[in-house]
């Protein structure tokens, strides 16, 4: 981290001065999102998959489905599990080893958006109430880190879920018997996360790596198709005023609607 941060410290002033003028080092305006490219169904072995490019940030998500036991408090619902790996090849700051707090936070923020918006109809994933349900594993794989991993991962996770096919089955004596053909995973909502960085008291949308390295704090606001907020996460060791947060919520709602429209979600 130290080497990368030192270089950026030199640029810190430049980044802040430009932002004060409403401009950014990579040529974007303060509320401009980077270009999003999505490919789906790229891993044949997975039940669903997607790769998202957000500028140079690259995230792959694979969805695997297994059967397992439901949680005791939700016996009629399938289980959703989101996990994130900050793969060492993606950045000089990523180290091999068990998930650190950054990857856990990333996975939990993406999870919260999908779960709280009720994007997946988990009740349709119940096989035998209280005994057997489908478990959906969403594995986020960060392949190149150029900032804003949360938004890129949330997009990739949803794209992969939308691409997920479940095999047809029937239940005989509590056992699953496969039938020919596939049905799509019941995805009914499209939560989109929008992240802002606060740099010198100004908010910028979709920060790239160098902006993230100089930011005071970040905030992620996830909205659903109706423009309601379904998840929020502040991060970083700085702070926000309530005015900044309400402004961010409004912009997040608009940006998410734009993205959904562009992607046809």
């Amino acid at each position: 981290m130290s080497a990368a941060t030192t270089v950026v410290r030199v640029k810190q002033k430049q980044i802040a001065q430009l932002i004060a003028k409403g401009k950014r080092l990579d040529g974007r305006g303060l509320n401009d999102y980077r270009e999003i490219k999505i490919e789906q169904g790229i891993i044949e072995r997975a039940e669903g998959s997607a790769r998202v490019l957000l500028g140079k940030t690259e995230v792959m998500v694979g969805v695997k489905i297994e059967t397992g036991e439901p949680f005791p408090d939700t016996p009629n619902e399938g289980v959703l599990t989101v996990n994130a790996e900050l793969v060492p090849l993606a950045s000089p700051t990523f180290e091999p080893g068990p998930p650190d707090e950054n990857s856990i936070e990333l996975a939990r923020v993406v999870d919260r958006g999908i779960r709280e918006s009720k994007a997946i109809d988990l009740e349709k994933l119940c096989i035998t109430p209280g005994r057997k349900v489908f478990v959906i594993f969403v594995d986020i794989y960060v392949l190149n880190h150029d900032g804003n991993l949360i938004d890129a991962s949330a997009l990739a996770a949803l794209a992969a879920l939308l691409n997920t096919k479940m095999f047809n089955y029937e239940v005989e004596n509590g056992e699953i018997k496969l039938k020919p053909g596939y049905t799509p995973l019941p995805v009914r909502r499209h939560p989109v996360a929008i992240t802002f960085a606060k740099i010198n008291d100004k908010l910028v949308v979709d920060p790239w790596l160098e902006e993230e390295q100089v930011m005071d704090a970040r905030i992620t606001i996830t909205t659903d198709n109706d423009g309601n907020i379904c998840a929020v996460q502040k991060g970083g060791s700085g702070y926000f005023t309530s005015k900044q947060i309400f402004e961010a919520a409004q912009i997040a709602k608009e940006k998410a609607a734009e993205i959904r429209k562009k992607l046809g979600w």
């Binding site: 709280e116 918006s117 907020i229 379904c230 998840a231 929020v232 996460q233 502040k234 926000f240 947060i245």
Partner: peptide, 8 residues
Amino acid sequence: LQMDGILT
């Protein structure tokens, strides 16, 4: 600041 659930 965190949130989970649904709010307008």
